[in-house]
Design a protein around this nucleic acid. Structure first.
Lengths: 346, 346
DNA sequence: TACAAAAATGTAACCGATTACATTAATTTT
DNA sequence: AAAATTAATGTAATCGGTTACATTTTTGTA
């Protein structure tokens, strides 16, 4: 096995140029205190020798890593991909690296990831919580060391951290109200049994809209799924087995809604004529399933950019910025065929 | 702003226990040479003080990071999510961290990512190439330093690195042959103009199948798309504008195939009666679009596990393991309604 | 009891950068 | 031309672990 060549260090460069490592170090970081002549010599030799700074030595000394940790539940949704793209945009621009890891919707795995990020001394953390996270204890370490943590989308119910999300109550309200305004009165709700407030809030919006129309909440119309496509199909079966069928369903997630639509159609139910459906997230799947899904759209890319930008501001910003804040992004109902409104075909 | 407390180091622990840092260091790593009594004392104090090892100091000294870099074109496909889950499984188990970044199908961005990974001294690299990568020069650094790089799925045409992929020629051949065996004779092909051999190979399989049936290759039936859903719809428009319509289409990607199906249906074409469609990847979308897509399935999770396992073997393994190899995974045609075979409804 | 071997611990160099402080060189000012 | 500034470079400590080698302590054996 061929011997790996040693890396070239600033010591090598200093020796070859017969100057001190300090000057080399400064030259490489373009410190104005170094003369242009010397800089040029250093740059050229560094380039020639393929010098690469050793990040560990640097991090060890500087006590920061220029790295941002990102922890998300799953990599496989279009929405998350969009958010991450937004984060990357901003982070790369500002010279930060990203470490991404997924909790796979497990609170335990999430805890491990948080710990790993902590050990790797990320400068800050961007997190969207798993379904099952119930305590924020793993994040306390960050708070204690004054390392900023920002939650986005699936944010904790209450905490001393910054949150970036949409108004889920309102979104749930709008989705439900839309169905009500279509004349639907028996509206089911498919959601997940989760500690995540985001789903509780959507439910709350749903309940509020019903209340506004004087419709009592019917527990039998609430179906708890895991929000997979398959669980949507199961939800369809369940809802159809009810003594009195619903005439509409509000699902908290498009994938699941798509499964639901497929399940309904398989049983000969017409969507939206017999049962109208509204989803959530405006995933591309909403434009593939037939009929296309009415859904709640909200800006993932922007959310990612905002989260990253806020974090980096915390990191570089002067002044006391550890204060709690919640940033609310706007969400919109996108009306398509599944909710029973005639949409002009293009 | 509250002052950040200094981290506790092995020096603190050593001082408090009145032993040397060397012993503390060894104890913490459970070195058998340290007595159980001492270990216990060290562990307890470390726990009590919330000691966290400084990874930089460790990496700086040990010259490795226990980190694996993963570079993929996009995070937003189901297939990739599956692969990554597989990689994570193995990596976590073996105590490796992951740094994931996406090239966004840009060769330039990919190059930057490779460089970043290199600077961060990942122990190894797992890569699926962008559409546009034409030269492997950025990876040479890794080769030179004897850091293992493994390509998966979208592997380079030829290189001295290890590749893990499927037999794309055969898969393309099977997809096309399936359509031929359904009696289709005018089969279009939607693919991408890419330097990636994987698409060239699928095309080759397509061409081989046609040749086997004595059908000359008709260039007008080849449509170059960007493989997005929208581009699939464009492809539909194009194919329908042809003087003689195709009676089948083989699309190299399910998303694009879904868009194609939607486009065809919008023009009143029946799928599969008028035009049969076969996709690629067995993405969940294949089970949502109507009719469901016949597609090529291959095991993403397994591919990820295998890639990670191979890499870690390279890393820990004894002996000379820098030799080139290509691992071929099995792929299967999954027949659904879109290709015109009656499928018993369940 | 004395000595050899094994077990446990300690010393100090090292990994590669950064940076406060000191020193020397080049310009300006008087 | 000497003194005062300013610019450029150098010295050496530091970040927090790891580990080769040395030393001390314990245990086992003759």
């Amino acid at each position: 096995m061929s011997k790996t060549k040693k890396d070239v260090t600033i010591y090598d460069i200093a020796a070859q140029l017969d100057i001190s490592v300090a000057t080399v170090s400064r030259a490489l970081r373009d410190d104005p205190v170094v003369s242009d002549k010397t800089k040029k010599r250093v740059f050229e030799l560094a380039e020639k020798n393929g010098y690469q700074a050793n990040q560990f030595a640097r991090s060890l000394r500087q006590q920061h890593t220029n790295t941002i940790g990102v922890i998300i539940p799953r990599l496989n949704s279009y929405f998350m991909a969009t958010v991450i793209a937004g984060i990357e945009n901003v982070a790369n621009q500002a010279g930060y690296n990203l470490i991404i890891s997924q909790s796979s919707e497990s609170a335990e795995r999430e805890g491990i990831n948080v710990r790993t990020m902590f050990n790797n001394r990320v400068d800050g953390l961007l997190v969207s919580l798993s379904y099952l996270t119930s305590n924020l204890e793993p994040f306390e370490k960050f708070a204690k060391k004054n390392i900023p943590v920002i939650f986005f989308d699936r944010t904790p119910e209450s905490s001393s951290f910054t949150n970036i999300r949409i108004n889920n109550v309102q979104a749930g309200y709008e989705a439900t109200k839309h169905l009500l305004s279509q004349g639907r009165r028996r509206i089911a709700h498919v959601t997940i049994s989760s500690t995540q407030s985001i789903y509780k809030e959507r439910f709350l919006g749903y309940a509020m809209a019903l209340a506004e129309f004087g419709i009592p909440l019917d527990k039998s119309l609430i179906y708890l799924a895991d929000l997979s496509m398959e669980s949507g199909t199961d939800a369809a079966k369940h809802l159809l087995s009810l003594p009195t069928r619903p005439d509409a369903v509000f699902v908290v997630n498009d994938n699941c809604a798509a499964g639901l639509v497929i399940g309904l159609k398989a049983k000969g139910i017409r969507v939206p004529e017999d049962i109208a459906v509204v989803g959530f997230n405006d995933d591309p799947v909403s434009r593939i399933v037939e009929p296309n899904l009415t859904s709640i759209h909200y800006p993932g890319h922007q959310m990612g950019e905002l989260a990253a930008r806020s974090l980096i501001n915390h990191l570089t910003g002067a002044g006391d910025i550890m204060l709690t804040q919640t940033i609310l992004l706007r969400s919109d109902l996108v009306i398509r065929q599944s909710s029973g409104v005639p949409v002009p075909s293009r």
